[in-house]
């Protein structure tokens, strides 16, 4: 199992800083704590051992976020893997935007329509986006797409409209196996921080140095990037692509 030390240590780093910050707030100056309320840094820990490939997350996201036909903000890839000398086995791999701390999708945007929120989410302002799709090209995870309906870039928002109301992201709330876990990486007491501490974790495409905020438990390195293998059979109907034209 390949652990992305850099990313992992990054998270640990944040956890430590978070702990120091809250200690400082408690110990030194209560006033400082009031002035600077704790700002969460949202992250997700996906425990692949718990994913049953039910796609509840995929559908919940579609329903919650009105994701148009032929696009996904998240989905779960299902693989049959056969290791040398082993038995065939199943891997269900949930994919979504990593809300990277060094997101390659942001600097390329010509009009600053996509940016990172204070709490870490990478979002798109659809009133500003010119639909040039440069960010779509730049994301190393296929996490972005052009929304046919709005004609602007679209992607997972970590459901910030829900998390800012104190709720969980739709995909996390409905995760049947309990594979998707969401919380504040800057809070050492959070479930996600605990999971990061207690498990070996890795990220997708560590070589891209994007510093993702989505971590995986149980991710085999052979699946962490472009997967060398046979693609899912796609019946002709699924690949009947819709052009982006407005009449489509």
């Amino acid at each position: 199992m390949d652990t992305n030390r850099r990313g992992f240590l990054g998270a640990m780093g944040r956890v430590t800083i978070g702990a120091v910050a809250s200690m400082a707030g408690a110990g030194q100056s209560a006033q400082a704590a009031i002035d600077k309320p704790h700002i969460p840094h949202w992250g997700m820990v996906v425990d692949l051992r718990k994913c049953i490939g039910c796609q509840a997350c995929t559908v919940a996201c579609i329903m919650e976020n009105d994701v148009p036909e032929d696009s996904f903000r998240t989905h779960v890839s299902v693989y049959e893997v056969l290791k040398e000398g082993g038995d065939p086995a199943m891997v269900m791999l949930p994919r979504l935007c990593n809300h990277c701390d060094d997101p390659p999708c942001v600097p390329v945007c010509p009009v600053e329509a996509t940016f990172k929120l204070e709490t870490g989410e990478v979002v798109v302002d659809n009133t500003k986006c010119v639909g040039c799709a440069y960010c779509v090209q730049a994301c190393p995870y296929d996490a972005r797409f052009i929304n046919h309906e709005t004609q602007t870039a679209d992607k997972c928002t970590f459901c910030f409209h829900r998390t800012s109301a104190g709720l969980l992201p739709a995909c996390v709330e409905t995760c049947v196996g309990g594979a998707r876990n969401f919380g504040d990486l800057d809070d050492p007491e959070s479930e996600v921080s605990r999971m990061l501490r207690e498990n070996e974790v890795s990220v997708l495409r560590p070589e891209m140095h994007t510093n993702p905020n989505v971590y995986y438990i149980g991710l085999d390195a052979v699946l962490d990037g472009r997967v060398a293998g046979e693609a899912a059979y796609r019946p002709p109907l699924t690949v009947e692509t819709q052009p982006h034209g407005e009449d489509a």
Binding site: E64, N65, D66, V123, V124, D125, N126, T127, K128, G131, N147, H148, E149, T150, Q151, T152, D154, T157, C159, F160, H161, R162, A165, L167, E246
Partner: peptide
């Protein structure tokens, strides 16, 4: 040029239930 969604960042996601 496309359909205008409800919100600039959250698109057509409905307001949270609570």
């Amino acid at each position: 040029s496309g359909e205008r969604p409800d919100k600039a960042l959250a698109g057509n996601a409905p307001d949270p239930e609570y």
